[in-house]
Amino acid sequence: MKNRLLFFGLCFALLHFSPIAYAETMTVDADRFELFQEDKRADFYGHVVVHRHDMVMKADKVKVWYQEIDGKNELKSLDATGHVMITTKVKQGSADRATFEAGSELLVLTGHAQVKDENSVLEGEVIEYHTATENIKVLKGKSGKQVQFTFGEEAK
């Protein structure tokens, strides 16, 4: 009986914390909206503001792909372009473009990419940020500009 309860408790925990079973609420405000049912895509234009969990993203244009899981539409991926600004409780980011894959929790900032927190500034052409682990990879782009990392008082 004890093992059976442990098994059901473990199954409940896995279902409760699984990113597939748990649908996160996302809201989007924009000047204009288009829905493409066949592609399972929604396009937002003009002063776009996306709220998801503890993240706020602002951009000129955002395309959102969704998927149906257990009868509910959930975020699959996102592509933001134009004056992209991202804010969380501890980090701020900016770039020309940002993509996000919900399954892998990978946020990629491209073009004049920058990520700041209270103690540091990272700059490069491409910044890959894993939102679940907070691991960051900064890559230089085709322009040849080197990666720059500033920390301490100068970062402020």
Rank of each mutant, 00 (worst) to 15 (best):
H112M: 06
G124C: 05
A98E: 02
E128M: 08
T87E: 05
C11N: 06
L106A: 02
M85T: 10
K116H: 08
Y22C: 02
K89I: 10
F151I: 12
T133Y: 11
K142D: 15
A98R: 01
Q114L: 11
Y66P: 00
A21G: 10
G144Q: 07
A98Q: 03
A113I: 10
S18E: 05
E134T: 13
H16T: 13
H47R: 11
T88C: 03
Q37N: 15
T99Y: 01
V90K: 13
N135V: 11
D79H: 09
Q114A: 10
T27A: 11
K145G: 12
A13F: 15
E34N: 08
A102V: 02
E74A: 08
G124M: 09
K140A: 12
K137N: 11
Y45R: 02
H112Q: 10
W65G: 04
L109V: 01
M26E: 09
F36M: 12
L122Q: 08
G46W: 04
M1V: 14
D70S: 13
T150I: 13
V50R: 00
G71C: 09
D117K: 04
H16W: 14
N135Q: 15
T27C: 08
F36I: 08
F149E: 09
L75R: 06
I136K: 09
K89P: 01
Y22R: 15
Y129H: 11
V138L: 09
V64Y: 05
G93M: 04
D54Y: 04
K140L: 15
F36S: 12
A80K: 01
E118K: 10
E128Y: 09
S104M: 04
L15P: 00
T25F: 13
V64E: 04
N3Q: 14
T150C: 03
M26N: 08
V48R: 00
G141A: 06
G9R: 08
M85P: 00
L75S: 06
M57G: 00
K58F: 05
Q114R: 14
P19D: 07
F7K: 07
A80Q: 05
F151C: 05
N135K: 15
W65V: 06
E68W: 09
T87K: 03
D60L: 03
K2D: 14
K58Y: 04
S143K: 09
V48Q: 02
